[in-house]
Computed example of a mutant assay.
Amino acid sequence: MDEQFDRQKSFGWMINVVASQAAKNLETELAKHDFPRSLWPTMMCLWEKEGVTQREIAQIAKVENSTTTRIIDKLEVLGLVERRDDPNSRRSYRIYLTKAGRDLKGTLQPVALKVNKEILDVLEPKEQDEMIRLLQKMMPTSV
């Protein structure tokens, strides 16, 4: 007998619902700090490593290069990042956080931790660890 599709057992559907809820919760919490969620992936990348190119940010954040350019423009207007000439290429820039961008990490990362905790709180601590381990195992190696 052919396997039947069951939405209630569909990994893709369930992970999408959970991810959508987490994104909505993060957006709500970041809004309390007047920070749009659309800027979050780029800031996360830069808090991990500064001096990367826009192309590298796009690859890490899994967004289009043109989208990354617009986001960096917005972050620059907000005074959170600055573009510096790339010593290895006359056609690209390296992106660095400003002091304000670095300082924002202390305000916004706890927001993300809170959202993650709220999503995972339905699981026991060992289940939470296992969930993270399994998702890490499933992540594409290019991330």
Rank of each mutant, 00 (worst) to 15 (best):
T69F: 07
Q54V: 12
V63H: 01
T69P: 02
S10M: 11
R84H: 14
K74V: 10
L46I: 10
Q8E: 14
Q136V: 06
S10G: 03
E76A: 11
T68H: 00
A61R: 07
V115P: 00
L104E: 07
H33C: 10
K105W: 08
G51N: 06
R133N: 03
G106F: 14
K126C: 09
Q109K: 14
L134W: 02
L113G: 09
R70K: 14
E3C: 05
R90P: 13
S66H: 06
I119V: 13
M1H: 06
I60P: 00
G12S: 11
K99N: 14
A100M: 11
T28Y: 09
R7P: 08
G12T: 13
I15F: 03
S92L: 11
K24V: 04
E64N: 10
Q8D: 13
Q21C: 09
R7M: 14
I57T: 02
L123Y: 08
M14L: 13
D121W: 06
S142N: 06
D6F: 06
T69V: 14
D6N: 12
K49G: 03
L104V: 09
V143T: 03
E76C: 10
P41T: 10
Q59R: 15
D85N: 11
R133A: 05
M43Q: 01
W47N: 06
A19S: 08
W47D: 05
S142D: 08
L80Y: 00
D73W: 10
K105R: 15
M131K: 02
M138S: 03
D34V: 09
R7E: 12
K105T: 04
M43K: 05
W40Q: 03
V17W: 06
E48T: 13
R94T: 03
D85E: 12
L46C: 07
M44F: 08
L113I: 08
V122L: 08
D6P: 02
V111N: 04
K117V: 05
K114Y: 07
K32S: 06
T69L: 14
A58F: 03
T28I: 15
R37L: 15
V77A: 14
Q128I: 12
E50Y: 02
N88T: 10
L135W: 07
K126W: 07
R83D: 02
L134I: 06
M43A: 02
A61S: 11
I95E: 00
Y96N: 02
M138C: 05
P36N: 13
V143D: 03
Q4E: 13
R133D: 05
Q8P: 02
T69W: 03
P125L: 07
T107R: 15
S66T: 08
R7F: 09
R83N: 02
K24C: 05
S38Y: 04
L80G: 00
L120K: 03
L108T: 00
V81G: 00
I71N: 00
M1A: 15
G106S: 08
G51T: 05
K99F: 07
R90A: 11
L97Y: 01
K114N: 07
A19R: 11
E48H: 09
H33P: 03
E56G: 04
E48I: 11
K117E: 09
T98S: 11
D34R: 15
E127F: 04
V115A: 00
T53K: 09
D129Y: 04
T28Q: 14
A61F: 04
A100E: 14
